[in-house]
């Protein structure tokens, strides 16, 4: 029981991170119908920026945790969204309107490029940072097993919930959100109505990158180590989450992320830690077999 509660906490934390990354996938897929393979690496770039800024702040002697967290978040979001913008501008925009596979290949190329760029410029070794947020609350103790809610976990969940609320408001209520949704439905018609489609797509990429940046910072705080390869696994998991929730659906991405996080945590605790990724993919395959458009996705109706 206590173990289950602990895994629930861990799973939700992990799931929140996956959900944040998954939104980037699902938005990009919704608006231009491509898998942005480099998105996981954008998240990795953000984690590296976070490490740099944390080290920088420590060097300046700033020890206030909330202040340094805020600064790191803002800086990472700023630089990472520029990375998101650049990726779209250089690798995907020239391929708009070509075959469906071309941007996918270009995205895989971009992913390889980003990974190796970070490896070259920042080094291939794992980077550990000094713990930023230590301690936690002991929730309850059963038979000597203490369920612990770390402060970093609380931080991740609070930040994610806040962001999701803000994000939902942005997409459903603001003029940008309307433009974004209308681009998803019909790009040509949207452009005829005088909306700058290219700009909307660029902003979508920047937003997705910003959310991935937050995820990158959170993971850096949570685990305390980063390396240039974290983007690949997290990217695949997050994309799985997006597909599981129904690609193109924002609540779906969050739900998918939470489910993947929970499945992973429980599987690792009760069955086998080595095969937790197999569990994720197997469940994905099973869901898609019986519900090919994901949990919250609308079924695609093909008109002939």
């Amino acid at each position: 029981m206590a173990l289950a509660l602990q895994q629930l906490i861990n799973g939700l934390t992990l799931g929140a991170v996956y959900g944040l990354i998954a939104i980037g996938y699902t938005m990009v897929y919704g608006i231009i119908g491509m898998i942005n393979f480099a998105h996981g690496d954008i998240y990795m770039v953000s984690a590296f920026i976070a490490v740099t800024v944390f080290t920088l702040l420590a060097g300046f002697g700033i020890s206030s945790v909330p202040l340094s967290l805020l600064v790191v978040l803002l800086v990472a979001v700023f630089f990472t969204s520029i990375y998101g913008w650049t990726v779209e501008r250089t690798a995907y925009r020239p391929l708009r309107g070509s075959t469906r596979l071309a941007p996918l290949i270009s995205a895989i190329g971009m992913s390889i490029f980003l990974q190796n760029m970070v490896q070259l410029t920042q080094g291939a070794r794992v980077k550990p940072i000094a713990p930023v947020l230590v301690g936690g609350i002991d929730v309850l103790t059963v038979d000597g097993f203490t369920v612990r809610l770390a402060y970093s976990q609380i931080l991740i969940v609070v930040v994610t919930v806040t962001l999701m609320t803000g994000f939902t408001w942005l997409i459903t209520k603001t003029s940008f959100g309307r433009q974004q949704r209308s681009c998803e439905q019909d790009r040509l018609m949207t452009s005829l109505l005088g909306i700058n489609v290219d700009r909307t797509i660029s902003l979508t990429f920047m937003l997705g990158a910003a959310l991935a940046a937050v995820a990158g910072v959170m993971v850096t705080v949570y685990y305390g180590v980063v390396d240039f390869f974290i983007g690949f696994v997290a990217g695949i998991k997050a994309f799985t989450a997006a597909v599981l929730g129904g690609i193109g659906s924002l609540p779906g991405a969050m739900l998918g992320g939470l489910l993947i996080g929970l499945i992973e945590a429980f599987w690792a605790a009760y069955l086998s830690a080595e095969y937790k990724d197999v569990a994720t993919f197997t469940i994905l395959i099973v869901v898609l077999m019986f519900r090919p458009s994901g949990l919250l996705g609308r079924p695609e109706v093909e008109k002939v």
């Binding site: 897929y29 695949i236 799985t240 597909v243 990724d277 197999v278 993919f281 197997t282 395959i285 898609l288």
Partner: peptide, 26 residues
Amino acid sequence: PTLRLRGDYLAIVTLGFGEIIRIILV
């Protein structure tokens, strides 16, 4: 299992299959 899937769903399932095989081998 992928007969009903199209396009990108198929892509992710095949990707997952590749990873499953690799993880099992490891």
